[in-house]
Design a binder for these strands. Structure first.
Lengths: 143, 143
DNA sequence: CTAGGTGCTAGACCGCGGTCTAGGTCAACG
DNA sequence: CGTTGACCTAGACCGCGGTCTAGCACCTAG
């Protein structure tokens, strides 16, 4: 109907998902708002569907499992009355994200440390030991 | 030998990995430095092994695939001479981490926005529309 | 009319990262 | 002595999230 309606291929292009994945997502109930079909049974996505999918992509990228997205979609599909539950779900995910952020930056510290020490090591011309000086003196048995 | 040597169970406890996973990691070559065995074939982990494993856990948590960790472990096992390659690998992973950080904080923005609007919505007593005002006027055909 | 492109469904297949089982060895305890 | 508990190996199994195939239906261009 609307001139902004899109075919599955077009949606795939602009969401970065494959058409296979789009169909999978639909089967798994990730889409709030049923996908319409044209006369010959082909999917017709509205601009809003695409926006929703873009959000799904972000949710996925931040580690939300498909089942959770599906749950959220269901809540939205059911319409108003369950806002509290949606909010809870979102807060929970936010917690999850901040946890990941903490872990990631922790790991970033580790890697930065290693990178720095290797850069030093290489600049100094292969002097000290490589990784952690590797206190494994197993060859020490000799004498 | 050393008084800080540990059994697989103890290592599991302090790394948070299961004994199954520890054995898996070993099979997949994630461990720099071969694991020793005691008289009856049981694994004996040194304090250094445990440290290494702790790093592995962080690498995993930051999305490094097992094969990559294995590669790194191999380099370390081979001893000095390949520092440049290790450095490259670490830099690459750092890039990966910062990418993830960006994505995550992007998604965090999204979620924060949603949470805020739902909080508002609920505080105001169920007025406006829930998610994105959902411009899907499909019930509009009536009249 | 035919060929190419895009879409449809149902269902098989895949890689990853674990997790668990069967069947056995070993050491310590009561 | 028998039992318990921690460990061993080899290999099966699992959930997740995709990805791909077969076989078919359309539509449009040449």
């Amino acid at each position: 109907m609307s001139d902004r309606d899109l075919s599955i291929g077009q949606v795939a292009q602009r969401t970065g998902l494959s058409v296979h994945t789009l169909r999978l997502y639909e089967r798994k109930g990730l889409l709030a708002g049923e996908v319409r079909r044209d006369g010959s049974g082909r999917r017709v996505y509205s601009a809003w569907d695409v926006e929703w999918l873009a959000n799904c992509v972000k949710f996925r990228a931040s580690g939300m499992p498909l089942t959770t997205i599906s749950r959220l979609a269901q809540l939205v599909r059911e319409g108003s009355g369950n806002e509290a539950e949606r909010l809870e779900l979102l807060r929970e995910h936010r917690r999850h994200i901040t946890e990941q952020l903490a872990q990631l930056s922790d790991c970033l510290d580790l890697v930065n440390g290693k990178v720095a020490s290797y850069e030093e090591h290489l600049a100094a011309g292969a002097t000290g030991d490589p990784w952690e000086p590797q206190p494994r003196p197993e060859a020490q048995a000799k004498r």
